[in-house]
Design a protein around this nucleic acid. Sequence first.
DNA 1: TCCATGGTTCGGTCTACGTCGAAGTATTGT
DNA 2: ACAATACTTCGACGTAGACCGAACCATGGA
Lengths: 229, 229
Amino acid sequence: MKSGPDIARIGALIGDPARANILIALLSGKALTATELATEAGITGQTASSHLKKMTEGGLLAQAKQGRHRYFTLAGSEVASVLESIMGLAASKGHLRTRTGPKDPAMRAARVCYDHLAGDMAVRIFDSLQLRSFLTVSSDKGGLGLTDSGKDFMLGFGINLDALAGSRRPLCRACLDWSERRNHLAGSLGAAILKRFQEEQWLRREPKSRVIHISPNGELAMQKLFPTD
Amino acid sequence: MKSGPDIARIGALIGDPARANILIALLSGKALTATELATEAGITGQTASSHLKKMTEGGLLAQAKQGRHRYFTLAGSEVASVLESIMGLAASKGHLRTRTGPKDPAMRAARVCYDHLAGDMAVRIFDSLQLRSFLTVSSDKGGLGLTDSGKDFMLGFGINLDALAGSRRPLCRACLDWSERRNHLAGSLGAAILKRFQEEQWLRREPKSRVIHISPNGELAMQKLFPTD
DNA sequence: TCCATGGTTCGGTCTACGTCGAAGTATTGT
DNA sequence: ACAATACTTCGACGTAGACCGAACCATGGA
């Protein structure tokens, strides 16, 4: 007599407060790491790991392993839509929401990601490199590479590719940008680019933060070196 | 810190198997008594009473006391819509309920979704309306509307649009069909169409289920009224 | 090589809650 | 009035699962 999909399974996944917080955080469309989600939900990493595993197996989340990070996103727009409609129900019943305040706009514009650039500016660089066919994107694991013209460009930019090739570290790696939710350039080349920017004093780091401010000269150089049109 | 509309509360309510069974039973749109729902969910009356109380307080159910019976229904079409969309998620993940009984194909063909039609037939109707430009689809959420020719069609079909417009309930709403994974028509217009079908005796409801059987006359009328080619 | 960091697995504790038996309250019928 | 039906409340029991500490893997960087 009971036929049909198992809505109880989905309901139970959404029904735990910690998991609900994680889902709401991911509703922004951004990819977040396991630890970010743990702090977001106010639980320890171990507990979050368990939750994330359950939700992934339950079809609510998708994950992308990247280096030692693990980025989680909602499994698809259908999941987001279900969450939205449930929020509608909950809100109509009188549970109102006071959502988190606006995040630092400077952080979204430009910031450091370990040792390379991230944020809007980094994504623009990545787009520009791809647009001008300096970067080749092969489908296999993180398979980015420089074309011959790309190599010329980097040499002209003042980057010693031979030195980078000596390191065990991969030259090019795609890194998922949390604010832009798109790829930017990581790897030793990404780090070298940041280094060049700093050498030219095109940017200034905020003291105790990841935020980066671009100088007027830097903005000019950006537009000349990495056009996106 | 992280307080929002409490989707966890709603999720937890749906997340218990017994409660999920009750909700699915009520998706038929009928009002059922507490004991009927108890047997439907395979639990005792005491347990059902507890569940029903929680779901009523949680805003999912409405109850009407009548004599010594207590009739329960879903609190509104919004609840039904949320349930259907969750069923869509669960179905897409392949977590179908254990037995796909003989009812399942009939259910996919045509069933009741609270107060309107769902299943293959309902999707065909929706497609037909869209194909003949009776329905306008605007991008914002749930933004459906009738065109002038659509209004004429509905009037000719015997639906009093003025009466429907008087209600606070939206005329047209898209409801995601879990078995077809496509939209069908909900809202007061969807309910009115189901009513017309019943008045014409084009369909027969199976006693204790959401399943609907179409009569030969009904099939004929379907093809004439809602052609899809 | 070694260390630091992100993430997972394991084991144990503790709370939440679904479940039913039994008793209690309403309402209808004879 | 009594009995029967419909449903609720109370109390007790038992299991599921959320949580964290600690130890364990994997990756990246020196």
